[in-house]
Design a binder for these strands. Structure first.
Lengths: 159, 159
DNA sequence: TTCAAATAGTTCAACATTGAAATATTATCC
DNA sequence: GGATAATATTTCAATGTTGAACTATTTGAA
């Protein structure tokens, strides 16, 4: 499904790569959701539980950095996880602006039971690519991501 | 930012590729939004205008297929574009269930003025990858995407 | 010390997104 | 031809998402 735009070769190449990257990502997310290994969790909820599981208690801002979401959004995501009894909030004593979020027993049990299945679904989704193709894809994505992040930092530097 | 999960090599490889793909995509979208070439359009609004521009008038369901969004969502996206006078709706005569969406003059002018700049921003974003790296990345993404879509089709076949 | 700047989180409005239920229309099968 | 299935869109509730304005708290500098 390449672009219909007629431009220079460099433009068509970049646009096609862009579309393919975006569509692969969208298709992958939809596939994993359909697979049912996320139970009734949204991506952000899943990411939050996973971060807490692998990194231990974090304050909301830290979680937002990990899953690339705004602070306003984190309030809502943690609200909904708290309503379901999967995480708990506690105001930090050292810095009373911060709120430490941690897994409850139920949250830990849930993520422990889900994660292996979810990882299995991801392995299966990438099964069509050989090991070296997966490495290549990962390397190219990392290179692209890093370049963009560094560019943002350079821009921020000037202000 | 690799996974913290300790699993088999195949699991770690797939998980790392997954994370890098997802993060590259997120970073890229954020970068393009920050660049300002989308004006006050959301991704879905931009995608809708672009589809109408390159493919001509489409009914809502067709647009949703192009930009991978649900029909319920399309109602809202087209609503908001219509409010801004960028598209118009007309009920189809051949099939009165369908609604043809087309660009207004304002919509056409907007996308015509935006698209080249936006394409330029995409070229620049991918500039860090060589031409052959871009081709490789595109090829790997297409392969992954196609495999997942075909799998969905095979599943749907059985029902 | 005290006041200004920075930081963490919340709130809010606007738009996005899905999935399910509802409506309207068209197609199909007996 | 008429019941039934399929299709296109809308509506709704729940959640997500951002960015901006706001509050509370901490930090840093005069």
């Amino acid at each position: 499904m390449p672009t219909h735009y007629k431009g220079s070769p460099a433009e068509e190449r970049a646009l096609n790569t862009y579309i393919r990257l975006t569509r692969a990502n969208d298709t992958l997310q939809a596939h994993l959701k359909r697979g049912g290994t996320m139970r009734a969790l949204t991506e952000s909820q899943f990411g939050t539980l996973e971060a807490l599981y692998h990194l231990g208690p974090l304050c909301q801002g830290e979680i937002g950095e990990k899953i690339l979401k705004s602070s306003g959004n984190m309030t809502m995501v943690v609200d909904n996880l708290e309503k379901r009894g999967l995480v708990q909030r506690e105001r930090s004593r050292e810095d009373r602006r911060q709120i430490e979020v941690s897994l409850t027993k139920e949250g830990r049990q849930l993520i422990e039971s889900i994660f292996p299945q979810h990882a299995g679904a991801i392995v299966q989704a990438f099964d069509t690519l050989s090991a070296s193709e997966q490495e290549q894809l990962g390397t190219l994505c990392r290179k692209l991501g890093h370049a963009l992040v560094n560019e943002e930092l350079a821009v921020a530097e000037k202000s």
